[in-house]
């Protein structure tokens, strides 16, 4: 019985849902690109948490492998995303996403 299993699975579930929902709400409601970014990370991590928990409970290591994948992809995404944000900021002197509507229609 690993350390993870000390906490019941339901608690992980609730925590993940709460974290994920906060992430979604953050993405939907905030207009600052940095915060949206962080909200996305929050969602990813909520999923990671769940994957690790289930992986442990089911004694299946595939879940943890996925977590590694997600982390790698998240890291890459942050690198690219922040670079884009830097460029956006340099051009608009703002990180408000509502300014970025040049591609409408």
């Amino acid at each position: 019985m690993s350390a993870i299993q000390i906490v019941p699975i339901e608690w992980y579930l609730f925590l993940s849902i709460v974290l994920f929902t906060i992430g979604v709400a953050g993405v939907l409601l905030r207009r600052n690109a940095i915060i949206i970014f962080m909200s996305i990370e929050l969602m990813l991590n909520a999923v990671n948490l769940l994957l690790v928990a289930f992986s442990s409970y089911l004694s299946d290591s595939k879940g943890q492998v996925f977590v590694f994948f997600i982390m790698a992809v998240a890291a890459a995404e942050v690198a690219v995303g922040l670079a884009i944000l830097m460029m956006v900021y340099r051009n608009t002197k703002s990180s408000d996403i509502n300014i970025l509507n040049k591609l409408k229609w």
């Binding site: 207009r31 509502n98 509507n101």
Partner: peptide, 17 residues
């Protein structure tokens, strides 16, 4: 239909969710 492409990212994400 193209009028739906408002350019508001928040709206896009909302629709996605």
């Amino acid at each position: 239909i193209r009028l739906a492409q408002t350019g508001n990212i928040g709206f896009y994400i909302f629709v996605m969710v």
